[in-house]
Design a protein around this nucleic acid. Sequence first.
DNA 1: ACCTGAACACCGTTCAAGT
DNA 2: ACCTGAACACCGTTCAAGT
Lengths: 181, 181
Amino acid sequence: MRADARRNHERLLIEARAAFAEQGADAPLEEVARRAGVGIGTLYRHFPTRADLLNAVFQEELAELLHRSRELAEADAPCSALVEWLRALIAHAGEYRGLAHALMSASHDRSSALARCSDPLRAAGERLLGRAQEAGQVRADVSIGDLMQLTNAIALAAEQCPEDALLADRLLSLTLRGLKG
Amino acid sequence: MRADARRNHERLLIEARAAFAEQGADAPLEEVARRAGVGIGTLYRHFPTRADLLNAVFQEELAELLHRSRELAEADAPCSALVEWLRALIAHAGEYRGLAHALMSASHDRSSALARCSDPLRAAGERLLGRAQEAGQVRADVSIGDLMQLTNAIALAAEQCPEDALLADRLLSLTLRGLKG
DNA sequence: ACCTGAACACCGTTCAAGT
DNA sequence: ACCTGAACACCGTTCAAGT
């Protein structure tokens, strides 16, 4: 890749991250391009779809979340570790308004970059869930897919009620009481 | 109201219902107007916002749901009645793609017609929840607000995965196990 | 090889003119 | 009093021309 192209790529990522955090995951792409000092066409050349751009922005956060999951996988209490992990996912989704919705929309479209982005999260969650189930702390008939869908749905609901800071916690607790095996 | 205005009002409601059912709650308003044989300005005159139009369309469904809640309020098993009611809400949201999201977005804006539209639903749910709690079948610390948020979130998640017809059922069951007092 | 931005498409919303 | 639809605004996306 040419030096100027690489530079544009980096600036686009930086500005996209800022714009998504400030204005939500549906921030105007035109503004991302403007802030990065490039034409809108250049943005599309580097990231053909919004999902591609979101995906690229979240690679960094994704690495952090996966790191956290490896820590939790060695915790003493498998069930608490799983719950901690789900809380971390909700907190992450809460940092970008509209992200929970984007992830949800993308989840059933396997060709989307954003859908692939949550595959490693799913795998990490599966390990934590498996441990909690083997320890007999979580029912065997709970699937990681259902659990992550529900987590995402809770994040989305919480996002709509920013004035109720504890909503996500309460909804998650309500849900988790149903996990106990 | 002038006769032609009343007629336009009715035709707009009929076509809006059809368009929302076919294309989702974010169907182009221009098309609703076209199908109703009126100018787009007339649609805006009768329904200044999309939420007003959605609200008007759902008044009929709302009456049916309230009727159902009164039947359930006399059922023998208060907890099953509550669950039945939540299932009915999810089924209703599922009939119009995007409705769950619209309801969720509107829920924190008290001035929206759509938010007021769910007030009677909330009141009906509160009666059913109260009966189940008095019978000792549901924990006392569960609120109808949280329960409806969660129900709506589940409806939204289910809508994104139409290929998994049982998703809503499973997520609701998972949640409901946490209710038992 | 990459970038630019004008151009096009689409939809929401308003409002001056018409009936 | 109500209706109409052109006009404007906004944003996403493409692509011919430029470097």
